[in-house]
Each structure stands twice: as structure tokens, then as C-alpha cells.
């Protein structure tokens, strides 16, 4: 039960949702778009999230799309992670999201909700960063299609009144060799220490990482280091570690030093899996 009241709206069209947001914002209701809603429900309960108007976008047809059309896969933002796993249209995405929270929670957590979450892991974004996907966003200025690597800088840079509608991914990335792993402090449940997703395309390895920094990222500098085939694997990984973004997280899940230790081993695993190179 949430300790505050709010109005609840279920718009049927994107325009209706956008107009509602603007009206409610003008009324000072601090409106919030809502899909799975797990974050509002859990953070709201302990007064870390607040709204007076919830706009549930689950009934909007465009947000429920899941189809391959032409050479793109389109995934709606209100699809639950379980539905994405069951359909398995993008194996790297399936593998990555299958480690988020737990199975029952993933019936409720949505693709858009995870990508736009306050919680810093936001692991569902990793495969899309690797696949140079594009996002469809709607807001007061209308529809926009933007490369995810442009608009996702630590988080999805939505303007006020905008929401994520769909993610489009070229099918050439969907069939590419991939690697995805989530390392936890211990056992097989709980928050990640580090989650890494990797893809090999055009003989180049791409990596995206969550849990190392207080935001998920894909780094061109890191990838350039890993793909510098003139050097030994150890040298490439050492160079990649030297150009990681900062700050490195230091929290109850693990110290910065331990995270970098785990990361180094994960990068060795990536190189072995996708490049066939092993260090004895």
C-alpha cells in the first residue's frame, strides 16, 4: 500500500497519454508514466517516489508491439520481461533480462520500465546499446526516432512529458554471436556485482556493462582496446580496464578493487567465448 493517493489514468493512444501528462503537469500533479510500475510501488512505499497522477501506458497498442518487420525487430516498452523471454526473438536480450530480479517479478517488470528505472542496473538496455538500436519516443514535440547510443547517456535522456514507446533493432545484430553473464556476490539470486553483455559483429567485439559504475554503459574506448589485435590478450584487457568510465562502485555488493578483479576475469571469458583466445 502506498502512503499517498494518486489519480489513475489508462490512455488508449499515445496522443492521449502525452496530452494527459501536460494537463496534469500544469495542475501540479507531478504526473508519472507507469508501465510495470514496480519501482513506483516499491519506492513509493518508503517515500522515495511520489506522484499525484499515474498514467498507465499498458493499453497503448504501440507500446505492446512485438514483431519482426522488414529487417528490424520492434519491441514495445510495456512488454513484460517474461513475454520477451518466452518469445525469444533476440537471444542476447532474452539471456540478459532473464537474470533481472526473479521470474515472478519479471512477469510485472517491463522493458521500458527497466530501461528507464531509477535503480542503476537497468540491464535491459545493454543488448540495445550493443546492437545500435533505435528508440521511438513520444512527447509534446511529437514522435522522435533516435539512436539509443545517442540518447542513453548513463540513463535515457527523456525530456519532461516524453516516454519510451518502442525499441527497434536491426536483425543482423540479433543473429550475431553473443555472450552475457551476471556475476553476483554469492549464490544465484540477488543484485548483481557486474552484468556484462557482449556481441561480435564484423569481427569486432562489443561490450556493455552494468553494475561496475553507477550507470550502465558501452564504451568505444574499451572496445577499441579489446579489439587491438596487435597486442596480447592480457595487454588488451589491461588497457580496457585503464579506460573504464568512473567512478567504480564501492558498496555492500563489492569494493571497487574487487569489482575490477571480477571484471578482468569476465573480459577474459568474453575474449575466450567470442574471439577464441585463452590465457593460460
Amino acid at each position: 500500500m502506498l502512503p499517498f493517493n494518486f489519480d489513475y489514468y489508462t490512455p488508449k493512444t499515445m496522443k492521449e497519454a502525452v496530452d494527459l501528462y501536460q494537463d496534469l503537469d500544469q495542475q501540479g500533479k507531478q504526473p508519472m508514466f507507469f508501465s510495470g510500475g514496480t519501482e513506483l510501488i516499491t519506492l513509493g512505499r518508503i517515500n522515495l517516489a511520489y506522484t499525484e497522477a499515474v498514467i498507465d501506458i499498458k493499453d497503448i497498442a504501440e507500446c505492446k508491439v512485438m514483431q519482426v518487420s522488414g529487417d528490424h525487430l520492434f519491441l514495445g516498452s510495456s512488454l513484460s520481461l517474461t513475454r520477451i523471454e518466452e518469445a525469444n526473438l533476440f537471444p542476447l536480450l532474452t539471456k540478459t533480462v532473464s537474470e533481472v530480479a526473479d521470474h515472478t517479478a519479471r512477469v510485472k517488470i517491463t522493458l521500458g520500465g527497466n530501461i528507464c528505472a531509477q535503480i542503476f542496473y537497468r540491464e535491459a538496455v545493454l543488448p540495445f546499446l550493443l546492437a545500435d538500436s533505435q528508440v521511438l519516443i513520444i512527447g509534446p514535440d511529437g514522435e522522435k526516432i533516435i539512436p539509443i547510443n545517442e540518447i542513453f547517456q548513463e540513463q535515457l535522456r527523456l525530456k519532461k512529458g516524453e516516454f519510451l514507446v518502442q525499441v527497434a533493432t536491426e536483425t543482423q545484430f540479433i543473429g550475431a554471436p553473443y555472450f552475457s553473464v551476471k556475476r553476483r556476490q554469492q549464490w544465484e539470486t540477488g543484485y548483481p556485482l557486474i552484468t556484462m553483455a557482449a556481441l561480435k559483429i564484423d569481427r569486432e567485439i562489443r561490450v556493455a556493462i552494468s553494475g561496475l559504475c553507477p550507470f550502465p554503459f558501452r564504451s568505444k574506448e574499451v572496445e577499441a582496446s579489446l579489439n587491438n589485435r596487435g597486442q596480447s590478450v592480457e595487454a588488451r584487457i589491461d588497457r580496457a580496464l585503464a579506460v573504464m568510465p568512473t567512478p567504480i562502485l564501492e558498496d555492500v555488493e563489492g569494493s571497487a578493487k574487487y569489482r575490477l578483479f571480477v571484471l578482468k576475469n569476465l573480459l577474459l571469458d568474453v575474449m575466450a567465448a567470442l574471439d577464441g583466445v585463452r590465457v593460460r
Partner: peptide, 23 residues
């Protein structure tokens, strides 16, 4: 009450649902 323990699980349209995570 945080979606972690599963004690409140019910079935919604054939799928398990943590009823503390659903309005």
C-alpha cells in the same frame, strides 16, 4: 511487501504475480 519474498503470490491470467507489486 517489496517483491522479494513471494509470500503474496497469486495467479493473474495464468501467470504468477506478486500481489504486492500490482495495483
Amino acid at each position: 511487501l517489496n517483491g522479494d519474498c513471494g509470500a503474496c503470490t497469486v495467479n493473474v491470467d495464468g501467470w504468477p504475480m506478486k500481489s504486492c507489486l500490482m495495483l
